[in-house]
Amino acid sequence: MLAQSDPAEINTRLLSLGGSQMDMYAGPLAPEAIFDEIRVQLKLAGVDTKAAYEAFLAKSDGYATMVLSDTSVWVLRLAEEKAHYIHVHPGRYSPHTFRVKASALKTALAYQAAAQHHQLTDDLLADLNRVRKELRLSPLRSTGESGHILEIIALLKQD
Score class of each variant (00 low, 15 high):
residue 1 M to L: 10
residue 2 L to K: 12
residue 3 A to P: 13
residue 5 S to N: 14
residue 6 D to P: 05
residue 11 N to I: 06
residue 11 N to H: 13
residue 11 N to C: 07
residue 12 T to W: 10
residue 12 T to D: 15
residue 13 R to L: 11
residue 14 L to V: 10
residue 14 L to G: 09
residue 15 L to V: 03
residue 16 S to K: 15
residue 17 L to K: 09
residue 18 G to L: 05
residue 19 G to V: 08
residue 20 S to Q: 12
residue 21 Q to G: 11
residue 23 D to W: 14
residue 25 Y to Q: 07
residue 27 G to Q: 04
residue 27 G to L: 00
residue 28 P to L: 01
residue 29 L to N: 04
residue 30 A to I: 01
residue 31 P to D: 04
residue 31 P to V: 01
residue 34 I to T: 08
residue 34 I to W: 03
residue 35 F to L: 12
residue 35 F to R: 15
residue 35 F to I: 06
residue 36 D to A: 12
residue 37 E to K: 08
residue 38 I to D: 05
residue 39 R to Y: 06
residue 40 V to M: 10
residue 40 V to A: 04
residue 41 Q to W: 01
residue 41 Q to V: 02
residue 43 K to G: 03
residue 43 K to F: 10
residue 43 K to V: 07
residue 44 L to P: 06
residue 44 L to Y: 11
residue 46 G to P: 11
residue 46 G to Q: 08
residue 47 V to T: 09
residue 48 D to Q: 14
residue 50 K to S: 08
residue 50 K to P: 04
residue 51 A to G: 13
residue 51 A to S: 13
residue 53 Y to L: 03
residue 53 Y to S: 03
residue 53 Y to M: 09
residue 54 E to C: 09
residue 55 A to P: 10
residue 56 F to T: 09
residue 60 S to R: 15
residue 60 S to K: 14
residue 63 Y to G: 04
residue 65 T to L: 03
residue 67 V to W: 01
residue 69 S to Y: 01
residue 69 S to R: 14
residue 71 T to L: 07
residue 71 T to A: 11
residue 73 V to E: 15
residue 74 W to P: 12
residue 75 V to E: 12
residue 75 V to W: 02
residue 78 L to F: 00
residue 78 L to H: 12
residue 79 A to D: 15
residue 83 A to M: 11
residue 84 H to T: 11
residue 85 Y to P: 03
residue 85 Y to V: 00
residue 86 I to G: 00
residue 88 V to D: 09
residue 89 H to C: 05
residue 89 H to P: 00
residue 90 P to V: 01
residue 92 R to D: 09
residue 93 Y to H: 12
residue 94 S to W: 00
residue 95 P to C: 02
residue 95 P to G: 04
residue 95 P to S: 05
residue 95 P to K: 05
residue 96 H to K: 04
residue 96 H to D: 08
residue 98 F to K: 13
residue 98 F to Y: 14
residue 100 V to H: 02
residue 102 A to P: 14
residue 103 S to F: 10
residue 103 S to A: 14
residue 104 A to R: 09
residue 105 L to M: 11
residue 105 L to Q: 03
residue 105 L to D: 04
residue 106 K to P: 12
residue 106 K to W: 08
residue 107 T to F: 01
residue 108 A to R: 06
residue 108 A to H: 08
residue 110 A to N: 10
residue 112 Q to V: 14
residue 112 Q to T: 14
residue 113 A to N: 09
residue 117 H to K: 15
residue 119 Q to R: 15
residue 120 L to F: 04
residue 120 L to V: 13
residue 123 D to N: 15
residue 123 D to V: 04
residue 124 L to P: 06
residue 125 L to G: 10
residue 125 L to R: 11
residue 126 A to E: 12
residue 127 D to S: 06
residue 127 D to A: 02
residue 127 D to G: 04
residue 129 N to L: 01
residue 130 R to A: 11
residue 131 V to L: 08
residue 131 V to Y: 07
residue 131 V to A: 06
residue 133 K to Y: 11
residue 134 E to C: 07
residue 134 E to K: 13
residue 137 L to A: 02
residue 139 P to G: 02
residue 140 L to P: 12
residue 140 L to R: 12
residue 140 L to H: 07
residue 141 R to I: 01
residue 141 R to V: 00
residue 141 R to Y: 06
residue 141 R to H: 13
residue 143 T to E: 15
residue 143 T to I: 13
residue 144 G to F: 04
residue 144 G to D: 13
residue 144 G to I: 00
residue 145 E to K: 14
residue 147 G to H: 11
residue 148 H to G: 06
residue 153 I to H: 09
residue 154 A to G: 08
residue 154 A to L: 02
residue 155 L to D: 13
residue 155 L to T: 10
residue 156 L to W: 06
residue 158 Q to K: 14
residue 159 D to L: 08
